[in-house]
Design a binder for these strands. Structure first.
Length: 85
DNA sequence: CCCCTGACACTTA
DNA sequence: ATAAGTGCCAGGG
């Protein structure tokens, strides 16, 4: 799956997100190398099922949760547990 | 290489 | 504030 490009970068950035903090897809895209790759970030995360990746800490730039591969409800619950909500 | 899909962002009405 | 349209990028067939 991962080779060594934008995808890996995205996963690395998301993995590095500290507990209680959240980054928007746009922010992650910028850190991953593609400032306009917000959509690509979502596509990568959607295909990535790594439990090591706190993809629940990635939300939309509008402040909305966006989506989650395990269910938006779980994402919302996790964010609440971490204190973001 | 072309076409379609997707956890997005931004502008205009 | 909400809706619709446009632009952006990566992955898969």
């Amino acid at each position: 799956m991962i080779k060594n490009n934008f995808s890996k970068n995205v996963l690395d950035v998301v993995k590095n997100i500290p507990k209680g903090s959240v980054l928007s897809y746009k922010e992650v895209a910028e850190r991953a190398g593609n400032k306009k790759g917000a959509r690509a970030v979502g596509a990568v995360l959607a295909k990535n099922y790594n439990k090591e990746i706190p993809c629940h800490r990635v939300i939309r730039s509008d402040g909305q949760l966006g989506g989650y591969n395990r269910g938006v409800g779980l994402k919302k619950k996790i964010l609440k547990e971490e204190g973001y909500l």
